[in-house]
Design a protein around this nucleic acid. Structure first.
Lengths: 251, 251
DNA sequence: GACGGTATTTGATCCAGGTCACACACGACT
DNA sequence: AGTCGTGTGTGACCTGGATCAAATACCGTC
């Protein structure tokens, strides 16, 4: 589907535009990553040189499944979903994870030097630092500590994927929905006297894809929870978890 | 379930015994790993010092889920299954992968320094090289190329787990069974005039756990395939794939 | 406010696969 | 040989969630 030498997808993103933020230089932005905290000054210099700041609007695809992997992306600001598509005619998607500030995207495929095994799409406007594959490998060789940290990132991703598999196989749809809501809430929620309130960054369709069920089934499950007084699906797209404990019990 | 300071499980394995193989020293065994090919002589010296040869019998658990991670294991000979258990009363298992010679086990948990996120059990008699966690990290720091290689191992594991998720979500049970059979056959099969013959290292129960379905459903699916002349479930536990192409078409 | 397009809800139906129950096959031990 | 125990095959049933179909809510635009 994509030629071996196709340009990196972000180069042709409609949402991509030059970054024009004065209060934060590229170097300073990179130094904010907890993942890289404590590494050499020289490392950051080299990383700043090797990287590009990238700003994309909500909804734009960072990279797609099958596309050649040209770079890894450090997420400075924003949220994105990682997903896989079924090859078939009626292409369903499965969301593998939703990542936020401080995460690394596309690392596995970049290290393997294989095409992207997943797609990534911005859920909100994002600020990213792109590091090209060869530069990354070179940096890892020059600054050994970096390799170790990135290996740990991959280890964590491995665990998350195992959790996902376990969730899909062992738990029923309502249980998975409950967990998904709790996960979203801890990332995006604000605690009030009524409960935890949030504007989900995921549409119903995407929530369904994250839980591995159909959109209709998700809708029904949410309605049921609302009916039982555990959730409040307030007017303007807001979701309020009225009884977090009740919800947790359904996991 | 396991105390923080429990001894590593292999120390109390009934199947564990001293290795008494003359024709192969520990050093030579380690140098056979493709994963480590081309690394410094010094590295292998250090690795040999830091590692223990371990021989376990078929069916013994190498480590269990939740157990503290003390070491990584390089699989020299044999096959093992990696799995997750559902916490519940009727503990179901899900097999995450079946690995053979040259694989690394328990790497992710060791790097994270967290308890094992999975269990590992020998399917056949195995020869393993155990490297303790701290030694591994030290080696990775001293020999940067090692970190890169291990990071690539984790990247590959990540892709495999994504594949598993996709398989579970997108494909039906018969499709997953077909793929499982083909995977097993390529690993363990021998091509004959009748088709691909093999003694599965997995029991029916385990095949079911690998495909994420019930034992009964697996049994039925196999019978169906046999009825259709695609498979021959010969007397003595052998499986023969009579029509590999037909089977592949069912994926 | 009317209109067209998209996202979501709700209802009705169907079936893949889980679960239960039991029969059978095989090996190990006495 | 008998008899456990463990693995496996098969039938009968039932349900969770997919799928199809249609109604409704929600936008932005004119």
């Amino acid at each position: 589907m994509y030629g071996e030498n196709a340009p990196p997808s972000w180069a042709r993103l409609p949402g991509a535009r030059c970054r024009a933020v004065e209060h934060l230089t590229k170097l300073e932005g990179l130094q904010e990553f907890e993942l890289l905290a404590g590494l050499d000054e020289g490392f950051f210099q080299a990383l700043a040189i090797a990287s590009e700041v990238l700003e994309i609007g909500a909804g734009t695809a960072l990279y797609r499944e099958g596309e050649p992997s040209g770079a890894v992306y450090f997420m400075g600001e924003g949220r994105a979903k990682l997903y896989r598509s079924s090859g078939g005619r009626k292409a369903r998607d499965q969301i593998l994870g939703v990542v936020g500030d401080g995460s690394v995207l596309g690392l596995a495929s970049a290290l393997e030097g294989k095409p992207q095994s997943q797609g990534a799409t911005a859920l909100t406007d994002c600020v990213l630092y792109a590091v090209f594959r060869d530069d990354l490998v070179h940096l890892m060789a020059s600054y050994p500590e970096t390799s170790l940290r990135l290996a740990r990132v991959l280890a964590a991703r491995t665990r998350e994927l195992e959790d996902l598999v376990g969730d899909l196989v062992f738990h029923s749809a309502p249980q998975r929905v409950a967990r998904m809501l709790l996960d979203l809430a801890t990332e995006e929620g604000r605690v009030t006297k009524r409960g935890v309130v949030f504007h989900p960054s995921l549409s119903r369709q995407e929530m369904a894809e994250a839980t591995g069920i159909s959109r209709e089934a998700l809708s029904r499950t949410l309605s049921r929870l609302a009916q039982e007084g555990i959730l409040d699906l307030g007017g303007g797209k807001t979701v309020t978890i009225l009884k977090p404990a009740e919800l947790r019990a359904r996991t």
